[in-house]
């Protein structure tokens, strides 16, 4: 026995409320982020990820306040993402109580920012979030980095990008399949497998979880170190504990 695979519930937040989600047409309110985080922690979540989906300038103060409230009551690691563009943004979130920050768009437009961030704060708190979209199928499968919620192609190969981000000091990769996100059809495990076997840092799979078996598949087929899901937990379709029991029954080492 050794290191457990992690289950990470993700809170997509807009103006201080948990919503789901970025790519759903109707944004359903799923509650108060502090209450929801506490519930996840009690159910046995291994970490919590908080994403500020609007990441507007005006909403920033609310986000900092929420992060501070969560950190004062939830004693598991907390990752904060959405609108992290400067070293000051990172410092502000870490000071509010975040353990890690997720950098997404800023990494694409300014890759040296990832290096500066990891040198200043340490790789252990720098997660690079990668939104990848499939552009070729089969044995020659390829994925490309997209920005703006999956609308804008960048021409950057997703797998090479992940390696580059690790070289720049990313301590972890949060890998979202834009093809699967919001579909409830399960992860793109071919993508997960390729990235996970390429980079030396932990990979978190995201995008597409609609059933407990999808979480298990991420580990068994995708080879990832952690699985992230939002909507299946928000509306209490499943608890974290149910998810863990399911994974354990599939032979995956988890923290129960």
């Amino acid at each position: 026995m050794g290191l457990a695979r992690r289950i990470i519930p993700c809170l997509d937040c807009d103006n201080g409320r948990v919503v789901k989600g970025v790519r759903f047409v109707d944004i359903r309110d799923a509650g108060d982020p502090v209450e929801v985080s506490k519930r996840y922690c009690d159910e046995g979540a291994d970490e919590v990820t908080f994403l500020d989906i609007a990441a507007s300038h005006e909403g920033r103060a609310t986000t900092v306040e929420t992060v501070r409230d969560i950190a004062a009551q939830v004693f598991i690691p907390l990752t904060v993402g959405g609108g992290i563009r400067t070293l000051d943004d990172i410092r502000m979130m870490l000071n509010a109580g975040a353990d890690k920050v997720a950098i997404n768009t800023a990494a694409v437009f300014d890759p040296p920012f990832v290096r500066a961030a990891s040198e200043r704060f340490g790789s252990q708190c720098i997660v690079v979030a990668v939104d990848a979209k499939r552009v070729a199928d089969g044995a020659e499968s390829k994925w490309e980095i997209f920005t703006h919620g999956g609308r804008k192609p960048t021409g950057i190969d997703a797998v090479e990008w992940c390696s580059r981000m690790v070289d720049y000091g990313a301590g972890e990769i949060l890998l979202t399949s834009m093809d699967r996100d919001g579909t409830k059809e399960g992860f793109d495990n071919q993508l997960n497998r390729v990235v996970s076997s390429t980079v030396r840092v932990p990979v978190i799979a995201s995008g597409g979880v609609g059933a407990l078996e999808h979480l298990a598949e991420g580990v068994l087929e995708g080879g990832v170190d952690a699985v992230l899901a939002a909507s299946i937990f928000h509306f209490r379709e499943f608890t974290i504990e149910q998810a863990k029991r399911h994974m354990a029954a599939r032979g995956i080492e988890v923290r129960l």
Binding site: G2, R6, Q124, P202
Partner: peptide, 21 residues
């Protein structure tokens, strides 16, 4: 080390990140 493996030969990621016994 870069080539850390478990007893079954599976490649282990570094950093060691997460919940261990």
């Amino acid at each position: 080390g870069e080539e850390l493996r478990d007893a079954a030969g599976v490649w282990l990621k570094v950093p060691h990140m997460g919940w261990n016994e």
